[in-house]
């Protein structure tokens, strides 16, 4: 699978409604962040958890979020961020940064 995003792209984390083993935490779903790098291509843990090892590999990105976008009650300065790894199929294009 080809990577759909590049460094600096704005991306939104999807609500996929999947059950089973998921490595995309609830707290980033629906949120918009910025791709900081492509980590590489890895087998999807959602499939590996049920023994499906055939692939294909999936692009994995590090995505950076402003803490004030993640938490309405964030107690800290506006420049604080959170960086987390998200697989390609959990992402769609985000809005332009305001």
């Amino acid at each position: 699978m080809k990577s759909r995003f590049q460094t600096s792209d704005r991306v939104r984390v999807l609500h996929l409604g999947k059950t089973g083993h998921i490595r995309t935490p609830f707290y980033v779903r629906g949120k918009v962040g910025t791709v900081s790098e492509l980590c590489g291509y890895f087998l999807n843990p959602e499939d590996l958890a049920v023994g499906k090892t055939a692939g294909p590999v999936v692009p994995l990105y590090r995505v950076s979020f402003r803490q004030t976008d993640l938490w309405p009650d964030y107690q800290g300065p506006a420049h604080d961020t959170l960086c987390i790894e998200i697989y390609d199929h959990w992402l769609t294009e985000g809005q332009e940064a305001s």
Binding site: H15, G17, K18, T19, I22, P25, F26, Y27, R29, G30, L70, W71
Partner: peptide, 14 residues
């Protein structure tokens, strides 16, 4: 769509 699935181990932010 509002997310309805959240594992009990998925505790970030609690």
């Amino acid at each position: 769509m509002v997310e309805t699935t959240r594992g009990y181990h998925d505790i970030g932010g609690n």
